[in-house]
Design a protein around this nucleic acid. Sequence first.
DNA 1: ATGGGGGCCTGCCGGC
DNA 2: TGCCGGCAGGCCCCCA
Length: 283
Amino acid sequence: MPELPEVETVRRGLEPAMQGAVISDAQVLRADLRWPFPANMAARLTGHSVTALRRRSKYILIDLSSAETLIIHLGMSGRILISGQVQGTYVHDHPPLEKHDHVVFDMANGARITFNDARRFGAMDLAPTASVETHWLLEKLGPEPLGNAFDQTYLWGALQGRKTPIKTALLDQRIVAGLGNIYVCEVLHRCKIAPTRQAGRISRIRSDTLVPAIRQVLTEAIDVGGSSLQDHRQTNGELGYFQHAFRAYGRENLPCLTDGCLGTIGRIVQSGRSTFYCPQCQR
DNA sequence: ATGGGGGCCTGCCGGC
DNA sequence: TGCCGGCAGGCCCCCA
């Protein structure tokens, strides 16, 4: 799934197709993804218009005229396809239903939105818009990494006393909400911090470098994700062009790209997940 | 309270 | 060609 930049790219892709538009028909093709869909989901969506498309961490929030918000998480393999008309322009024909297409929205404006999720780690739920932030999936999330509440003082404070490796701490959505395995690897490589270092034992100086690095990596990834929106078929949870800019992730046994570093990227497993890093320059 | 591991699912890829 | 193990962008839950 998509990490924050991919989810933001999907949100931006949905905007021209859904913003202000009425959901004329919602097809719900199975009873659940990771959890059961909310009761009568199709009926609670049909006939209502979309008043806003927001994102919180890796969740897409679709506000409806019914005063309910559709919460969507793409899990590991969630994708979204847009077909039909988008703002009066024909994008492409509705494709035949594919395996793992689970939910389909037909919009009154001629757009069709198809949700596909092979592994079904994704989720959908409905909650009152007024209290959506207190939904059980959202209430424990930490600050948005691109928001004002996430600053150097906050992160430093959040890391204090933590014995868990910094890699694991940055993946903890209660500390900062939206980073996933790829971008944490990239951030730690840029900051030359060993992923195994105990979170609470990182100096203030080095902790302070994490905040701008996190912002930069996410912003750069969102920027290139935007270019993949030209073709609405690409409005899915796939990694965008930023994957060509990875400097650590997926580069096991390849030379480290840090200036002046002669190291080789290695792979270790932390909390059951692969960590790619350079043992030479990341300390 | 914190930290580690299991589990949820399917698809793909490399090795035999 | 076929089977099997290992791997994958997430995150909740249980146990120590």
